[in-house]
């Protein structure tokens, strides 16, 4: 996996962590599953309130924006407000939230663009 991709993945983890902590969720775990073409983030957290859950789904399910890949990504992981997650939303392809045994699992996937051929 390329270094820029690794840097970006770690920034996304940081932003997700900050978002949850700023919303009062201090116990959570984040696992990443890195394949050659796809990275999956699995965030396990105690039950999210409805507002936070909807905010996350709305922001993370924005359409992928290829131009943010090369421009705004350095700001990822540097939240200034509780509500910010927009840039991460532009960098991931899909997000869903599953409920299991009183916990929520936020599953986010991102395709690696550094493998595209011209």
């Amino acid at each position: 996996m390329s270094t820029p991709e690794v840097k970006l993945i770690t920034k996304i983890i940081r932003e997700l962590s900050m978002f949850l902590m700023l919303h009062g969720y201090e116990q959570f775990s984040i696992e990443t599953d890195k394949e050659k073409t796809l990275t999956t983030f699995r965030v396990k957290v105690k039950t999210l309130d409805e507002k936070t859950k909807n905010t996350m789904l709305e922001k993370l399910n924005r359409a992928r924006e290829i131009e943010i890949e090369t421009y705004g990504w350095q700001l990822v992981g540097d939240l200034d407000q509780k509500s910010e997650l927009e840039i991460v939303g532009s960098l991931v392809d899909d997000a869903k939230i599953e409920e299991e045994n009183g916990h929520h699992s936020i599953i986010i996937t991102r395709k690696n663009p550094y493998l595209k051929k011209h």
């Binding site: 131009e67 890949e69 090369t70 663009p113 493998l115 595209k116």
Partner: peptide, 14 residues
């Protein structure tokens, strides 16, 4: 963009 193996259009803002 060629060197980075990324599409030129991903640099459109720059």
């Amino acid at each position: 963009a060629r060197m980075q193996n990324l599409e030129f259009k991903s640099f459109i803002i720059v």
